[in-house]
Design a protein around this nucleic acid. Structure first.
Lengths: 412, 412
DNA sequence: CGCTATTTGTTCAGCCATTGAATTATTTGC
DNA sequence: GCAAATAATTCAATGGCTGAACAAATAGCG
């Protein structure tokens, strides 16, 4: 699942071109402003002749296009800028969450070209029905994308739960899903995307992982190692190390919600005691703020909390402070362990960041060994509400950028 | 420091050979039994012709040698097995610890070909003097290695503390070192190793990191992702993910000793409260076991504890159980976060593993979300006392294996 | 013992992609 | 209008991989 580095396998004759296609395209994608062929040559270390040849392939495959020359001072023939094509391959992002379904389409440049959200309580809905609705939304998205000259080449589905390698959703507790064979259920519908060598038709992954990937690929480019925490009913984390998502041995990394913060504390539904989720999960905060859960559906709890805190409600402020402290204890442990310098608060935490950040930073300052020498940044996510869907779609186009040869082979 | 994947930079004409040299050599190193050229061809996907050419380079550079044909049943021309050369490049491992200096030499195959340990309390010794003594030991090691046909091509030094990118030891609290410019101090002595392109003359790193690398490269090959915990006076961890050591953003990962296990508990010298070190560090265990610290030098405390536990001493058993429980809380958090399936207890913990493992496993079973589906192994380190020195030397030869082109260019 | 089947390893012409130098293209500045 | 400067392309040369044919060395079998 690692997207950034070259294949560990054999380097055959043709791999050379494959690798340089990926190298050049990756540079174009990472550049701040449209680079010229000459820029790419100096940046990559290839000769201008090679870059020209590689770019010609990319242009022919409609992965990049020439832009207006970037204004430059000085003499000389003006450069022709290269940008990722705004037509061509695109990724389909899908998300099933507790209180909404989301579908979006992201193009090569990372722009969201289509977005549909359907708000509904998904807990009483059977998985097959939820997926059927998602497929319907995706069909409309594909048509919209086609009108914009985009071809969907892969899909990724975000779910709030544990997913195994085969795409089986083992357990999504807050959604009430257990052992749902998503790929099999989706296979009953007509295919949504075109098959391209090297790009899986469907990837199913944890929403926290995909939201973290979205953050990784957001513009302007941020750090290449960070922790992305999705605070919803449960608390999940996506761990990005050296520009790649770390999924763990079985793909179940990031269960930060069950880090013990008070080992002899409140029992948790996971069987443990004193898990973070019991102190900083949505329900814990709501309860601590003195709000009746019954009158607060999951999808408005966060907004209500932010509203109260904004108004200066003492109970809400105290609840958020306590939650932030518990979160800070857990984050301090993670930072001590992994030596990260950035923590992103996403999901429901994004809106609560103004009140959560101070106590988190305080715990980090007091508990992280190296905090004195190098500061840790804690900030809210830059992506909006359906970050996981955007990240999912983005993960598809990143595959094309990492391995353009497959797409080029397809389009002749 | 990532050893497995291809360079992220340009893939020039000659890189092809470089990559395939590394690929083939890596396969030879990883193989259980000496592979033939044909085996390598099928394993790598290269043609037999290419493998022959690549192997010829490796043979000419004395990185591999042909072994007696492996017994094989069936018809056909017998294969000639390829093994890593037992002469040629070797790595120098150095270690400064609280109570000993260690030097060792490891060959390409990972065999320890020389080992010297000098036991002494290093705390009152000035860093420059300690390093001078180490250099003297290393000189003898180099001569011994040369007699065996080995050429030292790089050195790695393990220290129990935080090291920055430049090799500056920022802080080694238990050794009493602070801001010690190790590379500058060693540069005052005659060079110990031959310069080889692509292999740094000296790497300074945390002992926990290097011990973890040693575990990673030990035979038979273990898992490619695990946590290696060095329990000494302080508690450090080396984090190996997907076959590569994860060093963190600044190289200071693995400070597991300061994971909060009782957030409002005992104050720690790091400024935090309730850090693991206060409950499972050597001093904490010794104190809890009712032993007077004064009469127990650091280097015998662990042995004494094991002795008492073996004899059934109730205080010692209770102290170890409590320490194991605290350790288990921290480890459970790490496993939840990173989804690892193996935890290795090294350093002083290795000898105490029989008493530490049960409570650690109990905490994991109770606190890890996925424990029910997939078990976590907790076991003592297979390397001996000076694991960090062996790992340090091993890290040098792994560089040669990952980038053989540099050595081959040198030896003509 | 000799023949065949089988597997290993090498040789060699062909080919693909990169290289580096020369060439063409297009602008700014004087 | 011309020189300087930068961008991009063309093209013969080169290095390394490929695939097929060939040589080498053994087991099995009559």
């Amino acid at each position: 699942m690692s997207l950034t580095h070259a294949p560990a396998g054999a380097v055959r004759q043709g791999s050379l071109r494959e690798l340089n296609l990926a190298l050049v395209l990756g540079r174009i994608a990472a550049a701040e402003r449209p680079p010229s062929r000459a820029d790419l040559a100096t940046a990559t270390g290839l000769t201008r002749a090679t870059v020209s040849a590689v770019v010609e392939d990319l242009l022919a495959g409609r992965l990049v296009s020439e832009s207006d020359p970037a204004p430059r001072s000085g003499a000389g023939r003006p450069a022709r800028g290269l940008v990722l094509a705004d037509q061509g391959p695109a990724g389909l992002g899908l998300e099933v969450n507790v209180d909404y379904l989301a579908v979006c389409v992201v193009d090569l440049a990372g722009e969201v070209r289509h977005r549909t959200v359907h708000r509904a309580d998904l807990r009483p809905v059977a998985p097959a029905d939820a997926l059927a609705q998602l497929v319907e939304m995706a069909g409309a998205a594909r048509d919209d994308a086609a009108d914009q000259g985009l071809t969907l080449v892969g899909a990724a589905l975000a779910v709030p739960g544990l997913v195994d390698d085969a795409g089986l959703v083992r357990l999504a507790p807050n959604l009430g899903w257990q052992d749902v064979p998503v790929p099999a259920l989706l296979a009953e519908h007509p295919p949504l995307v075109e098959q391209v060598p090297g790009v899986p038709v469907l990837v199913v992954d944890n929403e926290a992982n995909l939201a973290a990937l979205g953050e990784l690929h957001s513009r302007p480019p941020g750090p290449s190692s960070f922790l992305h925490i999705s605070g919803e009913v449960g608390i999940g984390a996506g761990i990005v190390l050296d520009g790649a998502l770390f999924r763990g041995v079985r793909g179940w990394s990031g269960e930060i919600g069950h880090l013990p913060v008070h080992p002899e504390g409140r029992p948790c539904r996971c069987g443990g005691q004193g898990c973070l989720e019991q102190y900083a999960g949505q329900e814990a905060i709501v309860t601590a703020a003195g709000l009746a859960r019954a009158e607060l559906p999951a999808d408005t709890a966060t907004a209500r909390l932010a509203e109260l805190a904004e108004a200066g409600d003492a109970d809400a402020l105290r609840a958020l402070h306590d939650a932030g402290t518990a979160l800070g204890v857990a984050v301090a442990g993670v930072v001590n362990l992994l030596d990260l310098d950035t923590v992103v608060l996403g999901g429901g935490y994004a809106a609560l960041a103004p009140w959560l950040c101070p106590p988190v930073l305080a715990e980090i300052a007091g508990r992280v060994l190296t905090a004195a020498w190098s500061p840790v940044t804690v900030r809210p996510s830059t992506l909006g509400a359906e970050a996981a869907a955007v990240g999912a779609a983005g993960s598809v186009v990143r595959r094309i950028i990492a391995q353009p040869a497959g797409w080029l082979a397809r389009s002749g």
